[in-house]
């Protein structure tokens, strides 16, 4: 885990937006989070971010029947990321593929540092992330929703986990890449972090960025995470009518 000290030189980039959806370089897509949407799950969350629609469900801590996975001193956090066949333009063949296995793993790795797993030895916490509609940045949306679902399930955590991507598209460093910007852009940098401490729990990069651009993109993404975190807080408090 890397601790990043953020410097405040958020550069202004391009003022008049050159982005396809007319967003400013540091503007997020429309965000909506709702907690406790599923009746039978211990905790759940539904998240909409632009064209992304993601459902997260948490079960547990519950008994782990797979003996070889059992940890004597802590719980295991099992994540499963799945895209619905109808979530993308061309029908996606159902079932796990290389991409979803990877995202499942990095989701688990991104969430684990925040959860007090040591409080539930020899048990499991299962997180299921179901992508109903995809429009770029579903792994970040999945992690953000899963974190709300974990809190909703009453699982003790050090902090919420928020994820957000930044990247480079048409030569500009921009926040929260849409599907087009992700596919046609030069670079994509999804991160997940704990907003209170500023610890980064996930950092991936696809494409090329100079050192300067990387710093700028990281600062943008951290700023985006903090904004999303406010929505997470609101979603949980709304569940209990505040």
């Amino acid at each position: 885990m890397i601790i990043i000290i953020t410097n405040t030189n958020l550069n202004t980039g391009t003022e008049t937006s050159a982005r396809a959806d007319k967003r400013a370089f540091d503007e997020l897509r429309n965000l909506k989070i709702e907690a406790g949407v599923l009746e039978r799950a211990d905790g759940s969350a539904y998240l909409e971010m632009g064209g992304n629609k993601v459902l997260a469900a948490v079960y547990g801590p519950r008994e782990l029947f797979v003996r070889r996975l059992m940890q004597p001193n802590r719980a295991v956090l099992r994540c499963k990321y799945n895209m619905a066949p109808f979530s993308v333009d061309d029908r996606k063949r159902p079932g796990p593929d290389r991409r979803s296995v990877e995202i499942s793993k990095i989701t688990s790795d991104a969430l684990s540092p925040a959860v007090f797993l040591e409080k539930f030895p020899r048990s499991t916490i299962d997180v299921y992330i179901e992508v109903l509609e995809a429009e770029g940045g579903t792994r970040c949306a999945g992690i953000t929703a899963a974190s709300v679902a974990l809190a909703d399930a009453g699982i003790p955590m050090r902090d919420m986990v928020v994820a957000c991507a930044a990247g480079k598209s048409d030569g500009n460093v921009v926040l929260d890449l849409s599907e087009v910007e992700d596919k046609e852009g030069e670079a994509d940098l999804p991160i997940a972090m704990m907003p209170r401490t500023g610890e980064i729990t996930l950092l991936q990069m696809d494409g090329d960025l100079t050192e300067e651009e990387f710093g700028k993109a990281l600062d943008l993404a951290i700023g985006g995470c903090k904004k999303i975190n406010e929505e997470q807080k609101k979603a949980i408090k709304n569940r209990y009518g505040e």
């Binding site: 211990d42 905790g43 547990g60 801590p61 519950r62 007090f116 539930f120 809190a151 909703d152 399930a153 009453g154 003790p156 955590m157 050090r158 902090d159 209170r196 949980i236 209990y240």
Partner: peptide
């Protein structure tokens, strides 16, 4: 810091959070 979603309970100098959901 709080580790849960819950209600704050302050007693003298001790702060606890009563969970709204648990196992």
């Amino acid at each position: 810091c709080s580790s849960l979603v819950g209600l704050v309970a302050i007693r003298d100098k001790k702060i606890s959070v009563i969970p709204l959901q648990s196992k």
